[in-house]
Design a protein around this nucleic acid. Structure first.
Lengths: 223, 223
DNA sequence: ACCTGAACACCGTTCAAGT
DNA sequence: ACCTGAACACCGTTCAAGT
């Protein structure tokens, strides 16, 4: 019962080094993501968190992209269920808004989802939910199938644009360019500077989803 | 007239070291992009190309993101003009297709455009063109203003998904997941596996643009 | 003002060697 | 089979010092 100063548990200051498993790695990755953002979620940083070297992670994760995909699917578990009240349109918009809001917190993750197509179980659940709602609304199956892509792409891209910090400057630059647009060379921009730049992100997202849904309903797939 | 072995021009093997200007830097960046892709278009690689150290570039370019934006705007100069034949819808679709096709060659650049909003002169020209076409089609100005964003976002995101190499695997994984989807837990996915995965990118882009245009025409902006 | 060498503080990934 | 130290081959950006 005597506490020895050199017992293995206290050799390092870390509380309890968890066994290295894929689950444990993803859980640690989620923690790093929440605490420090995707930028810091590197193989090296994660290895440090798990008290090991970066090479050890490659037993469980193919590469950084796969790590990010796994984390995204984990987060996707949050947005699965949505209240069943309202019309199919309202519920459809609500699911997609909830998905986008989740990504708003991690714009860099949204960005990576735009390139590295997710294919995890929670992502499949989301697709299933969207297809069911479009089916309920009587949207022809072929249009629904292609439409789901369009809806998810819009939601993801909207979140990706929601860059936390630096590229506030980009937006300022665009705003400035639009406001300075010459009446002579860019008459339409000059005339629409207000609407072009106005509207809170939520209103734009909502309008975009409505336009998208309307278009998907009405546009036949070729052949 | 005697050729000296140590004349300044031949001290290094490079042909003619161009003066360091923003124009020259962007031109060299374009060359590196075309030859080696955006991945290799780093400050260090570019400095090497210009026969100097990376620190020198920071006099003309704020950071890597700004460099990429400048290169994109340069490429955008290519897609400006489009034949005036056909209906406004056809011309609108053609301009956006031409924009997307240009980005297809540089998916990583498309990806960066999704985050770091471009605001260069050629980008403004493109917006002006799109607004003019929507105006010609009688689309209410407020809808046109927000719609342009939607159209460019779709075109850019479609190009961004067109990842050259690695994430072919992601797509295979998604295809596999969709085909394995259980009839019991994911009936809609199982029933629509064909349409979900079918269609060449061009057909999907074209259908997406048509759905978008239809939706933009018909969906009123709030308030 | 413009340019630069050198440094700081990082990366992803591989591989031979260990257990 | 799993794990790892060490290395390879890179990054962006800053800064003091030079011209």
């Amino acid at each position: 019962m005597t506490a020895r100063p050199d017992t293995p548990r206290s050799r390092r200051e870390r509380p309890a080094k968890p066994a290295l498993t894929r689950e444990g790695i993803v859980a640690a990755a989620l923690a790093v993501l929440r605490a420090e953002g995707l930028r810091k979620l590197t193989m090296r940083r994660l290895a440090e968190e798990l008290d090991t070297g970066p090479a050890s992670l490659y037993v469980y994760v193919r590469n950084t992209a796969e790590l990010h995909a796994a984390v995204l699917d984990e987060l996707l578990g949050t947005v699965g269920t949505v209240p069943a009240a309202g019309s199919w349109r309202e519920r459809l918009e609500r699911v997609l808004t909830s998905y986008t809001e989740m990504l708003f917190a991690y714009p860099d993750l949204a960005r990576s989802a735009l390139t590295a197509r997710p294919s995890g179980p929670h992502y499949l659940d989301l697709i299933e939910t969207l297809l069911a709602l479009l089916d309920e609304g009587g949207v022809p199956p072929a249009q629904a199938a292609w439409g789901v892509d369009l809806l998810l792409q819009h939601a993801t891209a909207t979140a990706a644009e929601h860059t936390d910090e630096a590229s506030q400057e980009d937006w300022d630059a665009l705003r400035h360019a639009v406001q300075e647009a010459s009446e002579r060379t860019h008459p339409h921009i000059a005339g629409l500077a207000g609407p072009l730049l106005s509207g809170p992100p939520e209103a734009r997202l909502s309008w975009g989803l409505q336009a998208l849904i309307g278009g998907i309903e009405r546009t036949a797939v070729p052949e």
